[in-house]
Structure formats: C-alpha cells, structure tokens
Amino acid sequence: MQARGTGVRTEPVSRPNPFDLLATAVVLLDSSGKVAFMNGAAENLLGVSAAQFEGQSLALLAGDGQAIEGLLQECQQRLFSVKRQQLIFNLAGRAATALDITVSVLEEPGLLASVELREIDAYQRIDREERQAALMQLNQSLLRNLGHEIKNPLGGIRGAAQLLETELPTRSLREYTQVIVKESDRLLSLVDQMLTPVRRSMSREAVNIHEVLERVRRLVLSEFPTGLTIVRDYDTSLPEILGDLEQLIQLVLNVVRNAAQAMDGQGSIWLKTRATRQVTLHRQRYGLALSMSIRDNGPGIPKSLRDEIFYPLVSGNPKGHGLGLTIAQTIVHQHGGVIDCRSESQPAYLSGVQGSALPQANDIGTEFTIVLPIGEPIKPVLSKETF
C-alpha cells in the first residue's frame, strides 16, 4: 500500500485479534468440527500451537474422544444452542485434567461452534483472589485503627513509667519501671512494623527481580550459614518489572526467612522465576507477568492455619509475631499481583536434598507462588477483523 502524496510504501497496521485479549481459552471449530482457530489462552492451557493444531480434531486431546465427537454430532444436528460439560483432557506436560467446557453453536458461515475451556479450579482461584483483596482491605483498616488505639495509651504508659522512675528511691524498684519502658518500646516497634506497608507511599522504578532474589539469598544464608541450601532456578530472559525495590526485597525476605525459620535453618529452599502469558490479575488482563515460586521442604503449615496464614498476628512459629506474611500480601497487592500458598503438613521427603538441583515431586513442604504484572494492562482493541 502506498501513502498518498508521499511516494512511500507502507504496510497495513496489524491489529490484535480480539480473542487473544480474552482470559478464557477459546477454540473455534469449522463446519466439519475441526479446529479453525484457538486464542493464546487456549494454546497455553492445552499446551499446543494453534498453527500446528489447525485442522485437527479437539478429540485428540480429550481423555474420552467419543464424548467430544458426540458433542460435535449434536452441534451439527442443532440439538442445542449452548451446552456445558466437564471432560478430561490430556494436557501437555501435565496429568489428565478435568476441564469445564462450554460449547456454543455458531451461525457464522464456515463455523460450527465455539468451545470455551476452563480449569475447574479457575473459579476457585478467582474467588480466592477476590477474598484476598477484600481481606487485605480489611487488614489495612484494622491495622490503622488498631495502631491508633494502641500507640496513644502506650505513649502515656511509657511516659508515666519514666516519671515514676525518677521518684523511686531504690534501684531494685526502678528495674520494674525499666521493664515497663522496654516492653512499651517493643509494642510500639511491633505496631510500626504492622503499619509500615500501609502508610508508606510506593515508588515505582525498573527492578530486576533476580537482583532482589540474590540480595535476599545472601542475607538469609548469612543468618543460617550451616545446614541451609538455597537453590536458584531463574529465567534470566525476564524483563524488569515496575515496582518499589525496598518493598520487593521486604516481600521476598519475609517469605524466605519464614521458610528458613520453619526448618530451623536445616533444609532446602528453591527460588524459581518464570514468565507467564495472558494473565488476569484483579480483573486486569496482562500480556506478560512474572511468576515467582519460593518453595521449601520443611514441616509445612498446620492444616488449621492454612486458611488464616495471611491474617495479622497469626503464626505457626511460637517465636513469631505473625506479621511477615500479612506484610508480604499487602506488598504484593500494592504491586497489582497475587500471592498463593500450598503446603503439606507431613511431606514424605524432608532431608538429604541439599545437593539436589531441583525439588522432587514429594519434596513439597510449603510453596508460595507470587505473580506480578510486567508492563501495563492490555486495553481491548475493537475491530471488525476476527481472524
């Protein structure tokens, strides 16, 4: 195409496919029931390339191919307009997985139906993220109010103890007022820790997440110089993320230090980074995101605490304050991300893995997965072009 009056030949602007902006995996079937198109989310979910799978039958990926063929025959006979069903699919690199599929009959020329595919736990994950966001807002409100209610009387108690100390005649009696002052200072410090991520404004700069991980790794290994191994599994091709460097260090340090303390410094921790594409975070769609895993082979989180680990003042460590994970969650949400945890209370494999390069399937004690956006959210582009 040549631009008028310029003599310069320009190429037509490539517009994004609207289907690729969807978080849901979508497959379009032609009139013969073969794959005509699949979006990026479907490629990621099914573990196949759209270009390679075009013209193939979706039944090839199904654990029960006859069930898919039966659905397609019903489509061709127009026995339904929309049908929802759960089927087993053999996904690349994964065990047989149950997917929730919704088949909609299309009236477009050359197309038979659209198939939407979702993992069964996707609904649970969305619900969990929404509950996390609501919990974080509740925590912030609680911490602000609690901090105000605690700091004011504590200041009065501390001041009164200092005045009383000047009136006491003996050193033995003054020791009691010193205890009051020290404990008041300890509680004030605890309240300040609770309020730090809430009241601190967040700066944004380009941050290399691997520099953050390496800094935390050196720090934790200096605290636990013997018996602790931290194994790195980084995707060094990851671009920088926009975030607050100090807060991101605090986030990773809280999680890694918790893991080391839970194992009394004896065990292994794995730090893993990967890129993940077409991710929805807090109802915003991102083309690229960072997935960071912090995994240990420790004793795991007690089952009674697993639903409460992000609550303030909840801890499975008798010496802990129960603030580390609350602060970590707050920082993650301030960066537009999500944090999730899975744990086994009694892992089958707890020792002798210091030399292992990668965790084995039964090495799991506790694993935290943190997903942070890279770049800005995708803005849908309206276009008449579908393919």
Rank of each mutant, 00 (worst) to 15 (best):
A161L: 01
D100K: 07
L142H: 08
I126S: 14
A96E: 13
L142Q: 07
L117C: 08
Q76M: 13
N90W: 04
G70K: 11
I157E: 03
A134R: 12
L117Y: 06
Q124K: 12
R118W: 06
L106K: 01
G70C: 07
L112Q: 01
Q86C: 09
Q124E: 14
Q85E: 15
L60E: 14
V103H: 02
V115C: 05
L72P: 01
C75Q: 00
Y123Q: 13
Q86S: 10
I101D: 04
Q132S: 09
E107I: 06
L91E: 03
E74G: 02
F80Q: 01
G63I: 06
N152S: 07
L79T: 03
A113W: 04
S81T: 14
I120G: 02
G155D: 02
E129G: 04
A59Y: 06
Q66Y: 11
L146Y: 08
Q140H: 07
G70P: 05
E130C: 09
R131L: 12
L79R: 15
P153S: 00
Q77N: 08
L111F: 13
L61A: 08
F89G: 05
N90H: 13
E149A: 12
G65V: 08
A160L: 10
Q86H: 10
P153E: 00
Q76D: 07
T97H: 03
L111A: 00
E129D: 14
L112W: 02
G93V: 07
F89A: 01
G93Q: 00
L142Y: 12
P153Q: 04
V82D: 05
P153M: 02
V82P: 02
L143Y: 00
R84M: 02
R118H: 12
E108I: 14
D127V: 14
Q73T: 12
L111W: 06
L154M: 07
